[in-house]
Structures are given as C-alpha cells and as structure tokens.
Amino acid sequence: MIPIEYYLILSAFMFIMGVIGVLTRKNAIIVFMSIELMLNSANLTFVTFSSYLGNVTGQLFVFFVMTVAAAEAAVGLAIIIALFRNKQTVSIDEINILKW
C-alpha cells in the first residue's frame, strides 16, 4: 500500500512545474499548456483524497474541472488565434496593449 504523501508530493511537484512554466515561458500557447498541467495536478490531489477517504465527491469535482478545462481550452485558443490574426505573434512580450 502506498502512503498518501507520495501522491501529494508528486502532485505538488507537477503544480510547481506548471508555475515555473507560466512564469518563464514567452509563448502564449505553452503558458496555456502549463495552466493545464496545474489543473491536472489539482485533479490528482482530488482523486487521491477521494480514494483514501472513500468519498466519491472528489472524483465528481475532477469531472467538473475537466468540463471547465475543455471550455477554457476552446475559448483560450480562439483568443490566441484572434490575437495572432491581429498582431502576427503569440509572444506574450509583444502583446502588451493593455499594459499601463
């Protein structure tokens, strides 16, 4: 039997890789994929506690998180396409018209 800490540490590591990806990458699509990685690490925590506590609610939350992630991917990628059409780039350094 695997101690619960192993799953939680793995999930924390994946979350941190997502954080580092969001903070360091310049390509908007890769930043977006890092956000998906962070969502997935949260999902792993949900499923771990659901399994260890014997409660199905965590897995239902993962189901809803996946719904939201699908909606987010569709809208976010549409925004990136619209940005690329207007500015010919997906680099977040050059997309700065809202910067003060």
Partner: peptide, 24 residues
C-alpha cells in the same frame, strides 16, 4: 507544500479507505 504534506498531523494519519474499489 512539502512541509505541509510531510509534517501535517492529519495527512499522515490517513490510510486508504477499504471501499475505494467501489467508489471509482
């Protein structure tokens, strides 16, 4: 995060529930 996970008194005492095969 690792500190909270490894040194928390509640997380360490959780053992796998016996009915976890049915709930998934």
């Amino acid at each position: 995060l690792a500190f909270v996970i490894l040194f928390s008194s509640t997380v360490g005492s959780i053992v796998q529930a016996p009915n976890n095969i049915e709930i998934g």
